Amino acid sequence: MVRSTSASRPPASEAEGHPDALVGACAAQAEPGDLGWALAVLLRAHARSADRVLQDLPGGARAFRLLSAVEQGQPNQLALAQASGLDKTVVTYLLDDLAGAGLIERRPDPNDRRARRIVLTPAGVERLADFHTRLDRVEDHLFDGLPAAEVTELRRLLQRAAGRVREHDPTTCAHVAALAADLPG
């Protein structure tokens, strides 16, 4: 792989006057094979577009992650926090907003009188399907111009890599439990 030298890159001062200086500077320093740059560009574009298409959802993209976790059958707030990667306190506030919007309900857990199960309401199911459709269009736009087979392969590889990272992420409960088991005492 051939990489350009720093001498071939424009100095940062040339990009500073540009209204989108950060993106301009990143684009000017892009190199073939620079995975971090490519992921950052895609992530920023996805995040901006997702924010726009989810603007009518109380809590935006974070609330969408919660609704998706509810849809996947996460049984309670703690499981939702873990599945969505959100702080438990944030989850509480988001669930309050989603309940206020009529998208979820907190129901008594038949197995634990102290606990509440979080379930989608019929309106929540309908809205979540609409949000999935909107985000599908965002992703289609991001990958416009790539053959469908390549997009499918890219998604598969990214999911596999993300799963491995999540599996080995030191902030996950499974990893912390394994480390704790190795401690003397």
Rank of each mutant, 00 (worst) to 15 (best):
L35I: 11
V53D: 02
E105S: 10
A174Q: 03
D96Q: 14
A27H: 08
L157W: 09
D140V: 02
A79Q: 10
L35V: 15
D169S: 08
H175E: 09
A115L: 07
A101Y: 05
H132K: 15
V119S: 00
P19Y: 14
A45H: 05
G185W: 15
L66Q: 07
V125M: 14
S84H: 11
H168M: 06
R117C: 03
A61C: 05
V176E: 08
G163D: 06
E105T: 03
D97V: 02
L98G: 01
P184N: 14
V165C: 08
A21R: 04
K88M: 15
V165M: 11
M1I: 10
A174C: 02
A45T: 15
A27D: 12
L120P: 01
D140F: 05
D109N: 13
R164S: 06
I118T: 07
A177Y: 05
P170Q: 04
N111F: 06
S49L: 01
R155G: 11
L120I: 06
H141A: 09
L103M: 08
D130S: 02
A40E: 02
Q82R: 15
Q82A: 15
G17P: 05
L57Q: 07
G124I: 00
D169W: 04
Q82K: 15
P58E: 08
Q159I: 12
V90M: 13
C26T: 09
A83H: 00
E126R: 13
A12S: 08
G102Y: 04
R137S: 06
L179D: 08
A28T: 01
A21C: 09
Q77M: 11
G24K: 08
L80H: 07
A123K: 10
E153L: 14
